[in-house]
Amino acid sequence: MTTTTATSHVYPNVLSPLHATLLCGQVPLFLGALMADIAYYRSYQIQWSNFASWLIAGALVFAGLAMLFALVGLFRRRNPRPLTYFLLLLVTWVLGFINALEHAKDAWAVMPMGLALSVIVTLLAIAATWVGMAQPRTGDAR
């Protein structure tokens, strides 16, 4: 049986459960904000805009903590995480924060910039999560 030898090089870069939860959790939150923005854009019903504001606030908490993990990960002695991952999260968070401020404007003043930012930030959050979750297949390297 050769399977016993496989354990030495399987998933060396796997995220801790907490890190993974924070990283993945930001995606539905930012996505939810985007969908709420779209609903407000189409209906003028202010409650959607309130939902978007809170969803963004929640997403910033998740993304911010995930970013801390990513930052620490840059300095790991074995298998440091890629810089791209940290930078993507950083940009996601900064633009997400600007989006939060944008959503703090009253009524229709949120539009259209709030909606545009929600699109961008959602895409960035997905990209950051993609890069963060992707595992290099170290076992096949040779």
Partner: peptide
Amino acid sequence: TAIALTALPLALL
């Protein structure tokens, strides 16, 4: 386009 759009809020700022 995404990059162009991200520049916009910064300009407003």
